[in-house]
Amino acid sequence: MRLAYYPGCVAQESGKELDMATRWVCKALAIELVSFPSFSCCGSGFIDEANEVLNVALNARNLAIAEKAGLDMLTICSTCQGMLTLANIRLADPKVKGRVDAALKPLGIEYRGTTKVKHLLQVLTEDVGLEALKAKVVRPLAGLKVGAFYGCHLLRPADEMSWESGEEPHAFEELLQAVGATPVYYRGRVMCCGFPIQFVKPETAERIAGRQIDDAKAHGADAMATPCPLCHISLDTYQNQVSKAVGHRLDVPVFHLPQVVGLALGASPEELGLARHMVSTDAAVAKIGSRALA
């Protein structure tokens, strides 16, 4: 499998451990990642709020770059996945496409709309397949209870994202099961992490994040795992502030999706950048450590 790798901004900066883990896992699963230093930011939902057609045009350029290389795109962020998918859909409207084409054509960029955009979670569950993944597991995460946290834009609007239920998805939990972990079902798993309003009203954003972490914990989760680095910022990077907002210490480690898979496939904590997390993952890793590799 060969895919145009769209890491997104955060995985190249403060969330570098996500990029490290993705590369490790894809190598282990023989997924060839083709890098394009010309990809720009997806707009993260913010450019969309200020200028929708500009945001669509920027993503049409991204999609056209992969299209020219004849590749489908791999995202590792729920928001990137959402913005690129919505761009493809909005570009099906001839009025939008007309305006975007008028901006892109003078630059020699042609968008035709043949590139599919897939998140790593979809590639792992649909293209690699859970049985094939299971066969590669060398260190089952047995005994580890993990609360999946999807990130809104990977699921909704469900009509547009069109791969899972917008409110009752199962893909992530099935993947957790395939790598030997015990998935924890809780209401917060499909809720918002608060990130979009972290700048606007931090105390509300943090209360929202805290609600979901508390919920996962109350349902017995030892750790959470997310396919979205923006959720990771809310849940892990800011967890100290979130604890203050909810008035008690949370102390729940939060893995990136490929870190959970990487651990099961035999990667070391160093290879997955676990030391870069703000909340220590040591206790969670120790739970599966008795089955560590030689």
Binding site: S14, S40, N51, V53, L54, L58, R99, A103, R276
Partner: peptide
């Protein structure tokens, strides 16, 4: 302390001129 690269500005992408022109056309 955990993520020291946050103080460094990332390098511009290849083709940043294209991005700027798209902004000019649609802003």
């Amino acid at each position: 302390r955990k993520k020291p690269e946050i103080t460094k500005a990332p390098p511009p992408i290849e083709g940043i001129d294209q991005v700027k022109k798209i902004y000019q056309a649609l802003e």
